[in-house]
Design a protein around this nucleic acid. Structure first.
Lengths: 359, 359
DNA sequence: TTGTACGCGTTATCAG
DNA sequence: CTGATAACGCGTACAA
């Protein structure tokens, strides 16, 4: 009875308000119900499951009430009620990395198209652990998680599992995590770049990578390079792990390997190492194509502008982002198959850094 | 009475569950209350307003219950109840722009430190209007909005106002929007760069910008350049609006202005135009420092690597992002002063593109 | 087909 | 100082 009274009073209040008054507070489902002279459930049903038969009369009344009030449901309340929101959590190891941003961009587009919003969590160098990021996101009842992380945090795996939400990994695998995986075909990309360098006449290849420990994509690319090196005769191949703190080491490695022959080319693991190599080459006063061959994974807007132009393998970043989202959406939709693996091909963008110039 | 019965049964249920059982569903405040043998209100008070005196005994009981259950409140439910979430909405015109990403990074850090999460909305080229983005974010009860947008959408202003949340504008003003504004000191940056070029011996300055229509930062920078040009005698100054679709126009403009004298330098409005100019220069076979002086706003990781190194004015992107969030936090905290304007100084990074080389 | 009543997890207002 | 109870806005069995 008390509830009944309250309901009626609500009805009066909202009915006595000017139709499209810009009241400080947004219209609720109760307002719509009152204005249409029906119950909240009817409005809810009309909004969610239109297929369920509704009396045409009532349906149109609700419809016009919704329109008149400019009503749109509160995602928060929906999330609380349904147990999950229309939010997708994205954990990125480093938003500074152009690759991550490009993927992010693709994912954001796909999310928006599907009516989802993106919650972003960046694990800068700062202390925030992957596990915490995942839990923070999960506490917002995200519908799913896209992870592009360091991949070392063991606790992250359990946190992700505990969240009970579908997860998709991008670029970096996470041992033991039950999730779809979307990535560049790393081995293929490395082979493509290396083959291109060899065909262009370079004989000694130096693979420059960030420390591979713990990061699957780095490990896979380096492994592919090594495998390749073993396969071919008459080619020298070395791997150098570069760290940001001591650029001199890279310069030293470059000069050392160059000394052995006149056909040294560098294969850089990604845009970060590409940058380092370019710096080292500048410091040495060398020129790409003449003193050193070069190809690197990751296309960037500046690749054409450095030296004579840098040869790269472009990743399909947009597709990666979109596919990751697509996987998630399928899982949310109930798809129940074993973890999938989606590998996309890179595309070689040949520029002059890989072309041998008269010396 | 019915409620009482329900409450007791709940107590039993949760009490009969293994303490740290990984139940599928997270612990709620009711679970904690039951375990501690107190009411939900008490737990809530303990969590939110510890200052209100609590009996030590009860406090410790609640504390241990919280710990035992690994309880943490549901932000969703809190938002529903409080009327606002611990979410901050960020609308970016173009995540592809490194400047935006850098700001985003600073903002994300500051948010995380303050216990807020970032909801991202990118307005790619795609049809999504600013207004829709703001409304989508607002519907999630965001505590505040950081806007770095095109600034043309009139509807956005009203949408932001209607949201009732504090707003801070970054880099781009929005006419009529009641909000704090955080940005580079555009006039100062342009003056700094121009002065540097003139001091370095360049006499004819060409300012290259994206179309200024509707974007405040572009307009302000261009205006500053024009003002400067009027002030100094013996210096020629022109403005060129570059569009992405026809790069030839830029090449033409460059050759045209160069024809008039031998001391032409370009001042690029941001990293986007810098890229375009670099492409044009490459196409012309010119060399920075010898055939053309150059300075551009926006420091990038590749600036040192293009040609002899590009002179730039670095924006304090991280500070911009942090300050924007700080403004927001203050407003959320109730600060009620007229819209503020925070202008930060750029920093000149002199490289060889601005140094005249023997020709 | 439509309405009632309750639950989702918190906070806040009041009694006690 | 603590506890019952009503919101917050919505979805949904269940009843009618």
């Amino acid at each position: 009875m008390a509830a009944r009274w309250l309901y009626d009073s609500l009805k009066l209040v909202s009915a006595s308000m000017p139709p499209s008054s810009s009241s400080a507070t947004r219209a609720t489902i109760a307002d719509v119900a009152a204005r249409a002279g029906v119950s909240k459930s009817t409005v809810s049903r009309f909004l969610n499951r239109r297929d369920e038969l509704l009396t045409p009369d009532i349906a149109s009344r609700v419809e016009s009430a919704v329109k008149a009030l400019g009503y749109s449901p509160s995602p928060m309340a929906q999330a609380l009620s349904r147990g999950h929101s229309r939010l997708i959590g994205l954990v990125v190891a480093d938003v500074t990395n152009p690759f991550s941003v490009a993927v992010l961009r693709g994912a954001e587009k796909a999310c928006k198209e599907a009516g989802y919003l993106l919650m972003l969590s960046n694990l800068g160098d700062g202390g925030v652990r992957e596990r915490d990021a995942i839990e923070a996101l999960a506490s917002y009842q995200v519908a799913g998680l896209i992870l592009n992380t360091m991949g070392r945090d063991e606790a992250a795996v359990s946190a992700a599992a505990r969240s009970g939400r579908p997860v998709v990994l991008v670029d970096r695998r996470h041992p033991g995590m039950q999730a779809d995986f979307v990535s560049l075909d790393n081995a293929g990309a490395v082979q493509m770049a290396a083959a291109h360098l060899l065909e262009s006449g370079w004989r000694d290849l130096l693979y420059v990578t960030e420390p591979v420990a713990g990061v699957s994509s780095r490990r896979e690319r380096a492994a592919a390079f090594r495998a390749l090196a073993n396969g071919r005769a008459g080619m020298k191949a070395h791997v150098f792990e570069s760290t940001p703190d001591k650029p001199d080491a890279l310069v030293a490695a470059l000069t050392e390997h160059k000394g052995r022959g006149r056909r040294l080319a560098v294969l850089a693991s990604n845009s970060v190492t590409t940058l380092r190599v370019a710096h080292a080459v500048a410091a040495l006063g060398w020129e790409f194509g003449r003193d050193l061959g070069f190809a690197g994974i990751d296309e960037t807007e500046w690749a054409p502008l450095v030296g004579p132009g840098l040869t790269t393998v472009a990743q399909p970043t947009d597709a990666l982002g979109r596919l990751a989202t697509a996987c998630l959406l399928e899982r949310m939709d109930g798809l129940d198959v074993p973890p999938r693996q989606i590998l996309l091909n890179g595309q070689l963008v040949a520029r002059r850094s890989s072309m041998r110039t008269a010396s």
